[in-house]
Design a protein around this nucleic acid. Structure first.
Lengths: 203, 203
DNA sequence: CCAAGAAATGAACTTGAATTCATTTTTAGG
DNA sequence: CCTAAAAATGAATTCAAGTTCATTTCTTGG
């Protein structure tokens, strides 16, 4: 006979899965991929190492799943904030503001995306590249829109979008690694101005 | 009795050391740190695994040495090119131009600095952070100089320098990962304009 | 050419982490 | 409360890479 899971058990399984992802984020943010061992994850999640494999088929699937969930978390937030505005400049600003805010709130997410993920291996490198390309394309869309409406002068919007994202990325990395700028919110203002001038915003 | 090394032997030892660093660059640029095994390095360098340890005490020392040499290679080149100009804007442009040119010429150097190194482990992360901080400080010095002479409006030059470097970094990463922009030299021009506007260059 | 020192070799050893699996504990439902 | 399924356990296994070392090959200088 096949047993039905009770709600209580389903909740327990689901919360355990969440816990695994949660502690993985915490550990990976502060340690290397190698140091982020299944044993360390299991211990911190309060389970046996073998139990881990009931939830994820292997370590790479875990990281992949975690990254994908983090990215979706970011996208959902961005879309929500963008929808509050109608002006494209405001939407664009909302996108960046949202990234900054989320990265400040969930520093481990920032550390994993900006610092840890790149070097793990080729597979993750590719995944990360895809995510970055997506975010740059999102930005490019706004720039194309603005250019089409005559708010920006003629320019290679792919390069501009890449540069735009790059300024934020570099400042975030510096903030993560050096703790500078101390006040990310005020740096955000400076950066928006820098980029608006860089784009040649009219008016 | 202690034997003297002949010039021929010295040259052989030195070229073997160089070869090890050279193949490490090649392998690390295309593979993960883990995949960059001593065995793979030794094989490609045409030596036995044990021989490797006659040249470097361990793997981390090898990587550290390699990174340091690559960085010095970059600095020497930058200084050489900067010295050809007297105008600060020209010096600044020369710095970035030099980075781009070297990265194009030695793509494995670019891949290692921009893509691989970040995630290896904390020690290398710190080393890389130092290098990046150095380069941003170099840029900041130029900006302070320009600001002092009234060529740039009042601004937080650390944030500007970080943003400035960030635009180049992001475009380089995109170029490495996506092959876009195809023409890095022309993207360089676009980026310089973007940043000059961003900085609020007068005239 | 020879003997001792230097360099090179690669199999063997060591280490540490990923994954498996026989066993135990918990849960479902009669 | 009982039994079979499900979930959890953690010691044992596997695997891969870093490092060592006894042995071999090459080099120096008499």
């Amino acid at each position: 006979m096949v047993y039905q899971k009770t709600e209580k058990v389903k909740a327990k399984l689901s919360s355990k899965r969440k816990k695994i992802i949660e502690v993985t984020r915490e550990i990976l943010a502060e340690n290397s991929y190698r140091e982020t061992s299944i044993k360390a994850i299991a211990t911190k999640a309060g389970i046996a190492t073998g139990t881990f494999y009931l939830y994820f088929s292997n370590k790479d699937v875990l990281i992949d799943t975690m990254v994908e969930e983090m990215y979706q978390e970011l996208l959902v937030e961005i879309k929500k904030e963008r929808s509050k505005h109608s002006d494209i400049f405001d939407k664009l600003e909302a996108s960046m503001q949202t990234c900054i805010k989320l990265f400040v709130k969930e520093e481990n997410l920032a550390k994993i995306f900006l610092v840890k993920l790149p070097g793990i291996n080729n597979a993750f490198n590719k995944k990360l590249a895809e995510i970055e390309r997506d975010l740059i394309k999102l930005t490019k869309k706004d720039l194309d829109d603005l250019k089409g409406k005559g708010f920006l002068p003629e320019q290679d919007t792919l390069v501009s979008a890449t540069a735009f994202v790059g300024t934020f990325r570099q400042v975030l990395i510096s903030w993560l690694k050096e703790g500078e700028p101390r006040d990310l919110e005020s740096a955000f203002q400076t950066l928006m101005q820098y980029n608006m001038r860089g784009l040649g915003k009219k008016g």
